[in-house]
Simulated assay, not measured.
Amino acid sequence: MKNLLKYIVLSMLSVVMVSCEDGDIGFEFDDQDVSTSGSIAKFYIDQTHLYVIEENSLSVFDITDFENMQVKAQVDINREVETIFRLGDVLYLGTTTGVLFYDISDPNLPSYLSSYNHFTGCDPVVSDGQYAYTTLRSNAGCGGGTNVLDVVDMSNLDNPVLVKSYEVASPYGLVLFDDYLFLAQGSNGMKVFDISDVSNAIEVGAYSDIKALDFIRDGQNIIIRTESGITQIAVNADASFSVLSQINY
C-alpha cells in the first residue's frame, strides 16, 4: 500500500509540474458533476476522497486531512479491474470482461449497481450520464479478437443496454466534448466522431500525426497523452482544434 500511495502522489505531482510549465493549463480536484480524469486512469480524486483500483479491488480513502488519510473501504472485485471513471454519484470500473457500475452516494461505502459484459479485452470507459462509451482493444496484452467502440444506454442503471458497436482501429482512451467523442488509437493516430445521434456516429476528423493514448478535458481544452509526450489543444464548437503546446519526453 505504501508503494501504491507513493505512485499516486508522484502521478499527481507530475500533473502539477506539467501545469506549472504551461500557464494555460490549470489543475483542480474533480467535483461530482464533471469527471476530468483520463479514461484509462487507475485512481480518482475529489475534494474529500481518493478511489484506487488494484487488480481485483477498489480502495476508498478519506483525504479530508491529506496528511492523515484514512482507509474507509476495500471492495473485492471478482474481475481484473483496469480503469476507473466517475460521473456524479456513479463509479465506472472498466474490467477485462465488462464495465461495472457502483453507487457512491455514500462515498465511504461503494455499492454495486450493475454491469455491462463483453468478451475479454482492454476496457477504458467514459460517460455523459445518459450513455457510457467504452472501447475494447485486441492485442497480446488484452486478449480477445475485436477492436470496437461500444455505446451503452445508461438510462436505467440497473439494466444497461448496448445501443451500438462501431469497429475502430486499436482503440485506447477516449473523451467526451459536448456532441463529440475523441478516440485515441495509439500508432493509428486519433479520430473524432459526431455522436449527437449515438446510433449513427459520424467520423468528422482523423489525425494520424497525433499518436494519442488518452485524454483529459480541461474546460475548452483537451490534454492528450501521446506515445511521445503531452499535447494540449484548444477545441472549437465544431470539434476542430488548434495545438496550444507540446511537451515531449
Rank of each mutant, 00 (worst) to 15 (best):
M190I: 03
G186R: 09
L174H: 02
E28N: 03
L113R: 10
Y166V: 01
L174P: 03
S199L: 04
N147P: 05
F177H: 08
P107N: 11
Y112F: 12
Y7G: 14
D238Q: 13
R79M: 15
Y44K: 02
L162M: 11
D153Y: 04
V15R: 11
V16A: 15
E21W: 14
G94S: 07
N248L: 08
N221V: 02
I8C: 12
L50R: 12
L109S: 14
M69F: 08
V148A: 14
F29W: 02
N159M: 06
I222G: 04
F27T: 15
T231Q: 15
G88V: 00
I233V: 11
V75N: 08
M190V: 00
F29M: 08
N147I: 01
R86Y: 10
V15S: 11
Q70S: 09
A239K: 04
A206E: 13
L174Q: 08
Q130M: 10
D106G: 12
E55R: 12
R225L: 09
V152F: 04
N159P: 01
L93A: 03
F177A: 07
L213D: 01
V15M: 06
M12R: 15
E80T: 14
Y207R: 05
Y133V: 02
N236D: 10
L213S: 00
L176M: 07
I77F: 07
D150K: 08
G129M: 05
S165D: 14
L100T: 03
A201N: 00
L4V: 13
T120M: 13
T36Y: 10
G129K: 08
D103P: 09
N200E: 10
V52P: 06
Y207G: 02
L149F: 07
Q232A: 15
V198H: 03
V126P: 04
R137T: 12
V161P: 05
E55I: 07
G121N: 15
A73P: 00
V75R: 06
I223S: 08
I195K: 12
V34M: 11
L113D: 13
E167T: 12
V148W: 10
